[in-house]
Amino acid sequence: RNFRSADVHSKDFPTNMAVKFMGDELSKETGGKDNIKVFGDSALGSEKDTVEQVKIGAIDMVRVSLASFNGIVPESMIPSFPFIFRDLAHFRKAIYGAEGDKILAAFDKAGFVGLAMYESGSRSMYAKKPIKTVADMKGLKIRVQPSDLAVAMVTAMGASPAPMPMAEVYSGLKTGLVDAAENNIPSYEEAKHYESAGVFSETMHVMTPEVVVFSKKVWDTLTPAEQVALRKSAKASVAYYVTLWDAKEKEAKAAVLKGGAKIVPASEIDKASFVTAEKPVWDKFATTPELKALVQEVVNVK
């Protein structure tokens, strides 16, 4: 079969390239029996729409931000906790390792099969001025994604969260409707936010990964061999994705610098001040003993 997979990014974005790669691997594994057709550009709907379609079995797979599952799979919130990862190495070890597998396994009870997670860089603050300590955040109007976790995170920093759709952020920054926003470098570049918020401070506060999810309804109709092949090709796509993503980040960084943006490197950020402010947020969202244990496990990864 030709599994249909949805994505909101354009066809040549790393997530889409990686799922296509996964399809090629799957085709090899199954002797040409199965493959994956990627529908990019939100053609089948928003992240929320397509997650629901996967659940109901209208489409077979989807690649979305893990944040899209926050209201569905509580475990999916953990990688989005502010400063839960010390650095990229820590993230990779946990998410591409046993802890990541535990989070993916949690999708099962919500009617999904979690196949793989991909990194999406780290989100950092950008504004007209540098943000080096949590004190610099005081009173700033920060655009956040419309999610409880993002609102709580920005509030804990002493700033005032202004949830608004991504499409309105460019003019919002330009006109001063919001003072700052936060995202990873490729989005900062692609949405041209550097034109009006020219200082990108590497606060690296959140490292929400992407996730590739399969429909449980469809999954249960597959042969065990197909299921194994799907899992195997999903895992195989991670390394391929990481190469593409690394290149994308480097390219984006060069482009924003060329566009006149200034980058405040992570070494100049008083990270400790942020971490102290954000600890209460973890407790607010890790409400059950199981979630608390998993948080601890992620933190303990050396």
């Binding site: 729409d49 379609q53 109901i56 209208a58 309105e168």
Partner: peptide, 19 residues
């Protein structure tokens, strides 16, 4: 043979756009 509920989902989500 697609689920009709998905058609309804797309109808509702098409109307439920912030802009």
């Amino acid at each position: 043979g697609l689920p009709l509920a998905t058609a309804m989902q797309m109808m509702v989500s098409g109307m439920n756009v912030f802009s």
